[in-house]
Simulated scan of single mutants.
Amino acid sequence: MSITRVHNFSVSLDGFGTGEGLTREAPFGHAGERLHDWMFATGWDGAFDVDHAFARLHDPGIGAEIMGSRKYGPPGWEDDPDWRGYWGPNPPFHTPVYVLTRHARPPIEMEGGTVFHFTDAPPAEALATARAAADGRDVRIGGGPTMLRDYLAAGLIDHMHLVVVPILLGRGVRLWDGLEGIEADYRVEATGSPSGVTHLTFTRTTA
């Protein structure tokens, strides 16, 4: 059965999933790449360790992705008809991707099988569409923190992998606001890494 999955979503010690001041040159604002340094040091760049073991689970079994508008582009991308995402001509998704935005536009076909669709549907409706496109495979909920929070609040996340990075951002967009007690719906497991990050997995235990 198809499930919803979150992978490699990094948050700071104070709970921020992105920094302040997002631009085309700084997709995570003042956080820079500090939330994701742990990933760049994995087997993709040479080290095969616990971080690599978690990072490599990102793609297998995924048939579609849902992402928020701020993952797709910085503030103002909606007014640029030529904006095609941060990832160049061959994005790393290779599936249908549903971008949640109030600014509709025709789908964009990219190299490698990625097709960006733009929808203002509420979470459950967007998920139903993505599940149909995934054709029995799982749906990845890609972030950013605002849309992930909405999906958690709606009870639509089955499995979530978070990475707590030992930095303090102080400002940006927090993940956990309004989600008090949500851990009661999940089995939570923690795995430390020599890199200093902590991998948390949340597996739903309630229907």
Rank of each mutant, 00 (worst) to 15 (best):
M1L: 15
M1T: 08
I3P: 01
T4I: 06
T4R: 09
T4F: 08
N8K: 06
F9G: 00
S10D: 08
S12G: 11
L13G: 00
T18W: 07
E25R: 14
F28L: 15
G29Q: 12
W38K: 06
M39R: 01
F40L: 06
F40H: 12
T42D: 02
D45H: 09
A47H: 08
V50G: 12
D51H: 07
D51M: 01
H52L: 13
A55S: 14
R56C: 06
H58L: 10
H58W: 09
H58N: 15
H58M: 12
P60R: 13
G61S: 06
G61E: 12
I62W: 07
G63Q: 04
M67Q: 09
S69L: 11
R70A: 00
K71P: 03
Y72K: 08
Y72P: 12
G73S: 05
G73Q: 08
P74E: 11
P74I: 11
E78F: 08
D79P: 02
D79Y: 09
D80Y: 05
W83S: 00
W83C: 07
Y86V: 02
W87D: 14
W87M: 15
P89L: 12
N90S: 14
P91G: 08
P92W: 04
H94N: 13
L100W: 00
R102A: 04
R105I: 12
E109I: 11
E109Y: 05
M110D: 09
G112D: 04
V115N: 04
H117A: 03
H117E: 07
H117T: 09
T119N: 00
D120F: 00
A121N: 09
P122R: 03
A126N: 07
L127I: 01
T129R: 15
A130L: 15
A130I: 03
A132D: 11
A132S: 10
A132E: 14
A133P: 10
A133E: 13
A134P: 03
G136R: 03
D138C: 05
V139H: 03
R140H: 10
G144C: 04
R149D: 03
D150R: 14
Y151A: 02
A154I: 01
G155Y: 01
I157K: 09
H161K: 02
H161R: 04
V163G: 01
V164P: 00
V165A: 01
L169C: 06
G170I: 04
W176P: 08
D177N: 14
G178S: 13
G178E: 04
E183M: 11
E183A: 15
A184N: 12
Y186N: 14
A190D: 08
S193D: 09
P194V: 11
S195G: 00
G196F: 02
T198R: 01
T198W: 10
H199T: 04
T201F: 14
F202V: 10
F202S: 01
T203W: 02
T203G: 05
R204Y: 07
T205C: 07
T206A: 12
A207R: 02
